[in-house]
Design a protein around this nucleic acid. Structure first.
Lengths: 223, 223
DNA sequence: ATTTAAATGATAGTATTACTATCTCATAAA
DNA sequence: TTTATGAGATAGTAATACTATCATTTAAAT
């Protein structure tokens, strides 16, 4: 039996659905690889076109600009992560156990998911760490938010907020603590690998230390 | 008596010291205003030159590119903030009180500091919130780090880490908790104003709520 | 199997960005 | 008064971020 995971994306993010065509899938696949390789700033549609033996104009048929493409792949990631959270907490009754699972899913490098052939989730995870916040750190964040481009991110945070409230229904800051651990799962990883003086695990460079730190932090906060 | 605050900057950040000339000061002053107005992505030396009735080439004599300029002004901010932390904790004996002061200094909008005529610290604070992390979220962060461009940021975090250890010498994650509260002081503010669903203070949009949240978080963590 | 539509390729062109170079003029320190 | 330094003016180039058009291939519908 072969299962295929299809994540329905906000249609305003693209001009033509990249999931539905060969070129579209190649755009997603190789934009992830290219952004990971050279960073989002030096990523251009021209370079991407050369990489996949297509043309710049061809890519512009799918995405208005590279920022929309970044929002597309980050949105995809958050949706996929929420899906993983749901799957992995389905049979877990204890809310504290759920929370531990969430922290692990957030802060641990993922394996490449076979049910999505053209997306390398492990590399995508690296992109989210280094480029993810650039999706919303813009002057047009308000309009983008009105178009619901950050829906998947907010949904994930809401879900984690609910788990926090399951653990302690009187906790005052479930949403802020959610966004804190989501962001820090990525930032502490980035710091660990690039600015180690900003963390306590620069020597080992072991992401399980990030998990330990976040777990301790979140349980202390809600207790 | 008139006091002037001069912050010594890493000399590799600029080609010519902007603090020493009239044009240099105008570059700093108006780049802050322009980045705040239009965002860092759409900020160009051409536009800045028009703003100050100078030329593009003139600005390139001071800064290699706009990213160096961003690192310059963010570095300046972190240095200035560390200076403020030192001043405001000088006569405070209780480490817990020091910590509260730090959180307040991090998360509260600053008043424009009269001792630095050409820098509007209040607007600079807004820039740090929206653009600050772009200074290090690059592919060249490692080389930039070798050039000590993030020294002031790391110094500030180290200082906060020391205060955390004063409060609880056995706490295991002083550096990570420092970078967490520094980043969250800004991100929670950004979320509150732009993506309120990610916080618990979107309704009030009151930055003292961010202070309350961070205080509770940090004291829970080190207890 | 044939028609028709949709997707892609090929090519061209424009405005803006991100620089570098050079030459002159103003100014202020030596 | 010399002389360095700062700043204005102008020009030019390669890359980026697009838009437009037309031909061709591929896939879907009849």
């Amino acid at each position: 039996m072969e299962l295929k995971l299809y994540i329905k994306m906000n249609e305003k993010l693209f001009l033509r659905d990249p999931e539905l065509t060969g070129l579209g899938k190649k755009i997603i696949q190789h934009s992830i690889l290219l952004i990971h390789k050279n960073g989002f700033e030096s990523f251009t549609f021209k370079k991407l076109a050369e990489e996949i033996n297509s043309t710049e104009a061809g890519i512009y048929r799918y995405f208005e600009n590279k920022h929309k493409l970044l929002m597309y792949i980050t949105s995809w990631y958050w949706s996929w992560l929420e899906y993983r959270v749901i799957v992995h907490t389905l049979n877990v009754k204890d809310p504290a156990e759920k929370l531990k699972m969430v922290v692990r899913l957030l802060a641990t490098t993922v394996q490449d998911d076979i049910s999505t052939s053209h997306v390398n989730e492990s590399i995508l995870h690296q992109i989210i760490i280094a480029e993810g916040s650039k999706a919303y750190l813009t002057k047009h964040v308000t309009e983008d938010n009105k178009d619901h481009f950050f829906g998947p991110y907010k949904d994930l945070c809401a879900k984690i907020g609910d788990i926090l409230l399951e653990c302690n229904p009187t906790y005052k800051y479930p949403k802020s603590l959610s966004s804190t651990i989501v962001e820090m799962a990525h930032f502490q990883n980035f710091f660990m690998n690039n600015l180690p003086a900003l963390t306590d695990f620069g020597k080992e460079k072991d992401e399980s230390k990030v998990v330990d730190y976040l777990e301790e932090l979140v349980f202390a906060a809600i207790q």
